[in-house]
Computed example of a mutant assay.
Amino acid sequence: MIDSHVHFWQFDPIRDSWIDDEMAILRQDYLPNNLIKELKANQVQGCIAVQADQSITETEFLLDLAQQNTFIKGIVGWIDLKSPNLDEQLEKYAKQPIIKGWRHIVQAEPTGFLLQQDFIEGIRSLKQHNYTYDILVKHHQLPEVIEFLNKAEDQPFIIDHCAKPDLKNKEIEDWAKNIRIIAQQEHVYCKLSGLLTECDWANWDEKTIFNCLDVIFESFGPDRILFGSDWPVLLLASNYTNWINLLKKYTKDFTAAQKQSIFNDNAVKFYNIN
């Protein structure tokens, strides 16, 4: 098994100001030695470390962690995709094959960010350097994602956290419609992560999650879906073992080959893991 989405940080109250008092459990360091126990307990052999801060310092931090911890199988870092010398920077990082792709926290950006021409040009550069791109948005941004995908052609994309449906209010009709449109593009994958924290943290229920998963599996199919935890953010609503067990329950009647794809092979394929 490979967890396609985890974060690491040394907590800094200024840099990590997005972690407010309501998220008190996250206001501490979360490093590989904190995660390894969870991975071993759940027979997960590796993970993809995804950026949580938008800086080159963050990318270098993840590189250092990967050099010290072989269970980190890949990194999704941050780079300024609108930089005029982006290609030069990508060439530099080509010497670090542990970096599989890049991400920008678009969920925090104003409407139209994805459609800016310099950003789209940056995305096109990723394709030339064989990098993936993680799309982090909320459900209401999906119409813009659809337009963006039509401009960005066949770049390998993955939707983080199922595009954060409004599970708190259980209003997923528009989200489901847009997900089905996006999934028609076969170069777009989706991560099973981040769903519990889109619910009421103290009162989420299995049915709400399974209704969401129904849409994802009907849209993308088992060959373009990756297991991910979003640890440690997951801890706001549950714990690592509970999330894995919930996904195993949902997929209990899937074939062995389908389970192998979802929990391991799709991550290996999408992120080009050796």
Rank of each mutant, 00 (worst) to 15 (best):
L114W: 04
S55K: 07
H129D: 05
F113M: 12
I99N: 04
P97E: 03
N85A: 08
A66K: 04
W102C: 01
I99D: 08
K92I: 15
F119G: 09
H129N: 09
I56S: 02
R124A: 13
F113T: 08
I123V: 12
Q68C: 07
E58D: 10
I72P: 01
K92D: 13
I105S: 03
Q117T: 14
Q89W: 11
E91R: 14
D87T: 11
L63D: 01
K82T: 15
G101E: 07
E109C: 10
L114V: 09
G122Y: 00
F113E: 09
R124G: 12
T59D: 04
P97T: 06
E60R: 13
P110K: 10
I72G: 04
S55E: 05
W102I: 00
E91Y: 13
K100W: 03
I79D: 05
I79R: 04
Q96R: 12
V106W: 02
L115K: 03
N130R: 13
Q116K: 15
A94L: 15
Q89N: 14
L81K: 07
I123Q: 02
A108C: 11
D64G: 13
L115R: 07
K100T: 03
I56Q: 07
K100M: 00
I56V: 09
E109L: 12
K127A: 13
K73F: 11
L114E: 11
E109A: 12
I72N: 03
L62I: 01
K92P: 04
P97V: 00
D87H: 00
E88W: 03
P97G: 06
K82A: 13
S125W: 07
L115S: 07
E121H: 13
E121R: 15
G101L: 00
A108M: 14
N130M: 10
N85M: 11
K100A: 06
A66F: 05
H104A: 05
N130I: 10
F113L: 09
P97S: 09
V106D: 06
L126W: 11
S83A: 12
L81V: 06
F71I: 09
I105D: 00
I120K: 11
L86E: 06
G101K: 00
P84S: 01
N130E: 14
N85H: 14
H129G: 10
T59F: 02
N130L: 12
Y93Q: 05
T57H: 14
Q117L: 13
K100H: 00
E60C: 09
K73M: 02
E91I: 14
L81Y: 08
F113Q: 03
I72W: 05
N130D: 15
F113P: 06
L81F: 04
R103L: 03
D87P: 01
E109H: 01
D87I: 11
I75E: 04
W102Q: 08
H104R: 09
L90G: 02
I79A: 07
D64Q: 14
S55R: 00
V106L: 09
H129R: 12
Q107A: 01
L62P: 04
A108E: 15
F113D: 04
N69T: 02
L86H: 07
A108F: 15
K92W: 14
D87C: 05
A66L: 00
E121L: 15
L90A: 05
A108G: 15
F71S: 04
L114G: 01
L81M: 12
D87G: 00
A108H: 15
N85E: 15
L63S: 03
A108R: 11
Y93A: 00
Q117R: 14
A66T: 04
R103C: 06
N85Y: 13
D80G: 10
V76Q: 01
